[in-house]
């Protein structure tokens, strides 16, 4: 096992873990967004509720979702290990540092951004995932089959202005995290090429803007609709 632990505990190995888990989470975000956009369909929540049911019952999805939690955890644990190492690498800091002149704010604050996203994640999971799974969720019938009406819970939640706002702001932080993380993951995996790096970088920027924006649109639209 020694070469494996050697590799995974080296600075590069740990960064590779960050990159791989990060890329998985990016994929997850895309899938999650596709599902969530169904909240905006004018069908009283039928599509979304059915989708939520499938998510909870398809064995493959369930395996993947466990993997997802593991990767989130790994992403967090490794980042803590790296941050501690990086802090130790510079015990005495600079009095003056002109970081803005040589790097982006997001790239220098991935840990802070990640922590904020973690707080969001806790609130988010508590508010929805936990409620769906263990809460008392009203049901709704489609063609005689009974489904949990998770759509209703979402609608109710986003009627609260502060809750909707919390989501919007959190997506802003996610955008910054992605703005660095997306391309950075490729660099860490060694995927840097004259031809492809500009494309990856462009994709990353697009992804970092579009995905959080669409996520944020959902509470905004629901809130506005709720105002009637």
């Amino acid at each position: 096992m020694s070469w494996i632990t050697d590799t995974l505990t080296s600075t590069i190995g740990r960064k590779v873990l960050m990159a791989l888990t990060g890329l998985f989470l990016i994929l997850f975000l895309a899938v999650h967004l596709a599902g969530n956009l169904q909240l905006l369909m004018n069908d009283g929540g039928e599509a979304f509720n059915k989708y939520a049911y499938n998510m909870g019952h398809n064995p493959l999805i369930r395996v993947v979702s466990i993997g997802n939690f593991v990767f989130i955890l790994l992403h967090i644990v490794v980042s803590i290990l790296l941050t501690r190492r990086n802090k130790a690498a510079r015990p005495v800091g600079y009095k003056e540092s002109a970081g803005a002149s040589n790097s982006t704010w997001a790239s220098r604050n991935m840990g802070v951004l990640g922590t904020i996203i973690l707080i969001f994640l806790v609130v988010h999971l508590k508010g929805f995932w936990f409620e769906f799974k263990f809460g008392a969720v009203p049901t709704v019938d489609y063609d005689g089959v009974s489904f949990k009406n998770v759509y209703l819970i979402v609608q109710e939640a986003y009627k609260e202005l502060w809750y909707a706002l919390f989501y919007v702001v959190s997506m802003g932080f996610l955008a910054f995290h992605l703005s660095h993380g997306f391309a950075s993951a490729f660099q860490t995996l060694g995927l840097n090429h004259k031809k492809y790096s500009p494309i990856i970088s462009g994709l990353g920027k697009g992804f970092a803007i579009l995905v959080p924006l669409l996520f944020a649109l959902i509470p905004v639209i629901i809130y506005i609709k709720s105002l009637g």
Partner: peptide
């Protein structure tokens, strides 16, 4: 005891 690379590009 050097730190890891965060790809900031600094």
């Amino acid at each position: 005891g050097f730190g890891s690379c965060t790809n900031t590009g600094a």
